[in-house]
Design a protein around this nucleic acid. Structure first.
Lengths: 230, 230
DNA sequence: CGTCGTCAAGAGCACTGCTCTCGAAAATGT
DNA sequence: ACATTTTCGAGAGCAGTGCTCTTGACGACG
């Protein structure tokens, strides 16, 4: 192995160690991540971190992208563990529960992805591809179902004109195999999944609903009905 | 007016001026509110703020409670502006749009109420009463509709056991006039309203949906269907 | 007039992100 | 084998943060 490759390797390991420690701090301290604290934990001086990340925001961006991929992995793994591929409702519910379980296991990372945007921080374009993986896992179930004839197209009549135009664009770029109306219903269900997880995680359910998992399941089943999943 | 009353009045005005300036900072700077900046804007020294708020968290709590009340006001005002009180769907949609409009007009305050919880900050019990006003405005529409015979009770069969127990508690303490199943459907619709607003406000819709208002309206109508609003 | 409570100011502590400079070490070029 | 360039970590320093403590001024009340 040439020396340059060794250096690159050491550098990559350094970067991943910084991210690991930063993630650990994130879990206990929340979104206001301290570079100095991370540096302290690594036995380095704070300025040394800047050799690997040009700013705190760049480190946050890296953590966000990693987070989107981790959530996407969880969603895809959830879908994959359903052996009966024709059980669309089972697949949908399993993916939703996988999303919720990941969020409960990594609350700070979830808040970073889906919570209030960090002030003065604009998510760069790089994040969108990673962010699309989780909804893509959900919509993929609908695509499978429509291809198998288990889902019927409600027809474009239920979408208002401007919305249909937006949905058509998304359909053209990502989900060519699915009618617009079904895609829109899937988006509604995905948004409700996000809403239910956020509502629970951000404390809005405190003192109101104790049977969290059952309540989430109930809502996701309502969304399955809305989509028309058999 | 006795001197003590004058002092109390000056104190109250001082407190409300601090909150006003803090709100202004919140709108431009986001959640990480700087006490020193607020003090600078008031022509005071930072330590003087502590005469009125024992800590930054206490100031945030005051802003949160004010925010919940402002949102509750907006929701109730939205409901009140529908003259045809029997038009349940119109009232529901108007309230939802009022909520969204308030959120768009006060994004930082909305994020404070419904976004990622501030790390190390636990919302005190005082906030829950104020927080309940907005969902109460929505559920009140359903109560009216059920009392008028325009809404039919779907029956308790659609709720899983543990969820029904939680819903029964809420019903007993707040919404005695509404069947549990309808209350649960209303809660689902309220959560979706929150989810749709947060999804939009927290940037998840960027580059995907441009017809924001129409898309929101479409989703809220889907929720009206789910509730069974005529 | 003296006392007491209220208020703002100022200094100071420990912390933050970030920049700059400097020295050591390693890799590269001749 | 020697000289040069690149890479990396350390340290100092700047401007900012929340918060505490002390000090001094002012008005109200006995």
């Amino acid at each position: 192995m040439p020396a340059a490759a060794i250096r690159a390797r050491a550098r990559a390991e350094m970067i991943s160690e910084i991210k690991m420690i930063a993630r650990r701090h994130l879990e206990t301290e929340g979104a206001n991540l301290s570079l100095r604290a991370v540096a302290r934990d690594m036995g380095m001086v704070s300025s040394a971190i800047y050799r690997y990340f040009p700013s705190r925001d760049e480190l946050l961006t890296a953590l966000i992208i990693d987070g989107y991929h981790a959530l996407g992995d969880a969603a895809e793994a959830g879908d994959a563990e359903v052996t009966d591929r024709a059980d669309l409702r089972g697949r949908w519910l399993t993916v939703c529960h996988s999303i919720r379980r990941w969020a409960l296991a990594h609350p700070a990372e979830y808040a970073l992805l889906f919570g209030s945007p960090v002030p003065g921080y604009a998510a760069p374009q790089d994040t969108t591809a990673a962010a699309a993986r989780t909804p893509a896992a959900l919509i993929g179930i609908l695509t499978d179902g429509f291809a198998a004839g288990a889902l019927t197209d409600p027809g474009p009549g239920e979408l208002p004109g401007p919305v249909q135009a937006d949905v058509a664009t998304v359909r053209a770029t990502l989900f060519a195999g699915l009618p617009e109306a079904l895609l829109a219903r899937g988006a509604t269900a995905w948004i409700h999944c996000f809403g239910a997880v956020s509502f629970e995680l951000f404390g809005q359910l405190n003192g109101v609903i104790e049977a969290r998992k059952e309540y989430f399941d109930h809502q996701m089943r309502q969304m399955c009905d809305l989509i028309g999943l058999p």
